[in-house]
Computed example of a mutant assay.
Amino acid sequence: MVLDPIEEVLKKTSSLQIIPTGKPTPTPLPSVLPTPVDYQHAGHDGKTTLWVVFVIMVIASAVFAGLSWRVPVSKRLYHIITTLITIFAAISYFAMATGHGVAVNHIKIRHTHNHVPDTFTYVDRQVYWARYIDWTLTTPLLLLDLSLLAGLNGAHILLAVIADIIMILTGLFAAFGSEGTPQKWGWYTIACIAYLVVVWHLAVHGRAQAQARSNQVATFFASIAGFTLLVWTAYPIVWGLADGARKVSVDGEIIAYAVLDVLAKPVFGLWLLITHSKMSETNVDLGGFWAHGLGREGSLRLTDDDGA
């Protein structure tokens, strides 16, 4: 039997399996999975706390306004300042409770490894920027209350207020700072330095001026200023654990700040106004325009010569 030349070639090369007889083995590829995002948002406890503190600030504002009606207009400076503090705080807490005073900070965290490529994790954490606006308005007013109580001069009051505003704004910048760079903790350091300037003016200049007024004023100023500085010192600690290192949940952060705000505003204000009413040395008597308006004091008078 004579084979066809083509068949003979195929027979000789069949062992080489020129024509594939089985399914090819797929090459395994590394799977690509999306990196999960850690969402750190306020829960039920945090949102409830915001509403509770809003109500507390509204009640405190009404109480302080009622106390102001018991004294002449010329002696209401402490009452007006203290009432404005809790009004601003109430507005801030209403904004946060309704979700209009919050933003999400998108954080990218790099993890470095020795023998494999770097990996990244992502965190979306809520930052309540309305709180920083509140502090920018209320803490200078708190300082003004303490400065008037001590009898500080205008230069020291101005420097303390400016340092306080720098402290709050740099704290806000730090809250939105980039992770893994000197930026975030650099802003935090500037805020802490500004806070030390505030402490210097109150603890040194304020204390000296209060002692010059009377022993009673000095004792009261030392008590209420010491209480305020103790409460204020807790704020950067909470910030470092919450927005800074994220060791505290958003709910825990809200509750911690809520306790501090209630102590620093309604409790401070009630203590100040009740004690101030019993100490005549602390009065700031503002007559003239403050109490009576312009009246006829600013009107022009034409003399006989001017009208001639």
Results as ranks from 00 to 15, higher is better:
G287Q: 13
S147K: 00
K108E: 11
G298T: 11
A245I: 11
G22M: 08
G244A: 08
W69Q: 15
W185R: 05
G43V: 04
A103P: 05
H201D: 01
F221R: 00
I19K: 10
L272W: 03
R131N: 13
Q216M: 13
I56F: 07
D45S: 11
S214N: 11
L172H: 01
S15F: 14
T21K: 13
G244K: 06
A62I: 14
I6W: 11
A222F: 13
T49L: 00
A42P: 03
Y195V: 07
T303F: 08
T233I: 11
F268M: 00
Q17V: 13
P117M: 00
L300E: 09
R246N: 15
Y195H: 12
F64V: 05
G177C: 01
D4V: 09
M96E: 05
A308N: 15
P36S: 06
R213S: 05
L270W: 10
L230S: 12
I18F: 15
G293D: 05
T170L: 08
K247G: 15
L141Y: 09
T219A: 14
N153Y: 02
D243S: 05
L260V: 04
L137H: 06
I165Q: 04
M279D: 07
S74V: 10
G171C: 05
I59M: 06
S92I: 00
Y257G: 07
S299C: 15
L286V: 06
S92L: 02
P182K: 07
R125M: 10
R296F: 15
T21N: 12
A194L: 01
